[in-house]
Amino acid sequence: MNSEKDFIAKSLTATIENGSSEWSAPSNIALVKYWGKKQHQIPANPSISFTLRDCKTITKLNFAKRENDGNFSFDLLFEGKPKEDFKPKIQKFLERIEAYCPYLKEYHFTIDTENTFPHSSGIASSASGMAALSMNIMSLEKALNPSMSEDYFYRKASFLARLGSGSACRSVKGSVVVWGNHAGIEGSSDLFGVEFTSEIHRNFSNYQDTILLVDKGEKQVSSTVGHDLMHNHPFAEQRFGQAHQNLSAIKSILGNGDLEAFIKIVESEALTLHAMMMTSMPYFILMKPNTLEIINAIWKFRNDTKIPVCFTLDAGANVHVLYPENVRESVLQFIKGELLGYCQNGQYICDRIGTGAINI
């Protein structure tokens, strides 16, 4: 499956009048970041992420057959209540995927969605939200095409999720997921995320991610705008090359369990992502003063204690604190004692590596 054409729905032999499905899909945190994209949500460089377990979106989809009038028909509920301001994003998503899911206009959909993390917490819900919706759409397609293989089901779900939000394709299946063509990762693709199948060292099993909510306000520059600014960026080509090198390196590290080398790449990737923002035209800064306070405190704590804790950042001010499970108590003590003062209202979320979307 190396072409978009492979994902056009065929063999829809069954007839379904109505029904429902429900899926949860998690957020994910990239270790090697993607920043910059080509047309149709194709990444300018490959990325690799840890799938989270508890920060997730739960979406229920009810569908009922209707007369195809040439329009999409759907109601959107967030936590059980109508949410009109989310509708344009869903409309755009359905328009993008219609070529691959031609049955969509034959149904009226009720999409009921909720997040396990606080809305506007500064945690990107687009990845988990688009992944959860894509899983439900594929449940309908699977009902229309009962002979569909499980492999195709998950690949197409990831493919569809990508068209809603690039990083959503990494929230479908697997604990560690690669998205983007990379010579060293067999089966990797720009079209969908693939499960990292090489053996992962026990140092990384049940890896912890404590998310420090530094700023819950809306970002002054959206990720979409930020990605677009890579088109004429003076350092773009060097950055894309660096991401390929770092992905090769982290592939080895995940196998050999070298936590020191892991920390260097993960923190360097986080700072490089923000360096790209600061050196684009127009330039912008998404980190806040408290982001830097936390980073410096983590460096001092790691230096003083030799505990292998590190940070990474998304395209925002919040800090993901990553560490092995066997140092959890010491790190949480440090976070509660020294870092919560830098969080908005002292808010933080404890999470860990998960496995992907779950059918409820």
Rank of each mutant, 00 (worst) to 15 (best):
A124N: 07
L12S: 11
A131Y: 06
F63Y: 15
K336W: 00
F153Y: 13
Q91H: 13
D351F: 01
Y348E: 03
S149M: 03
L259N: 02
L254N: 02
E114V: 06
I265C: 08
V172I: 12
S139L: 06
Q39K: 14
L259T: 01
C55G: 03
Y207W: 11
E17Y: 12
T13D: 08
P146Q: 05
E67V: 07
F50T: 13
V176S: 03
A357W: 05
D304S: 11
Q39C: 03
L273Y: 06
G241N: 15
V319S: 08
V177S: 09
G316R: 08
F204G: 01
E79P: 07
T57G: 04
T224Y: 13
H244T: 11
E150F: 04
R328Q: 05
F63S: 05
V177W: 03
P308K: 08
R302L: 09
H233V: 11
E237D: 12
D6A: 14
I90R: 03
M278K: 14
S175I: 08
F159Y: 07
Q238M: 13
S205R: 14
D215W: 04
L229Q: 05
D190A: 02
I285K: 11
D190M: 05
V194W: 04
G241L: 13
I97R: 07
S268F: 01
A297R: 08
G184W: 00
L332Y: 02
S158K: 02
W35A: 08
N206P: 01
E218Y: 11
Q39S: 14
A157K: 10
Q245N: 14
L313P: 00
D258R: 02
L160F: 10
S189Y: 00
A99T: 13
I211W: 05
F262Y: 11
N345K: 13
N256W: 05
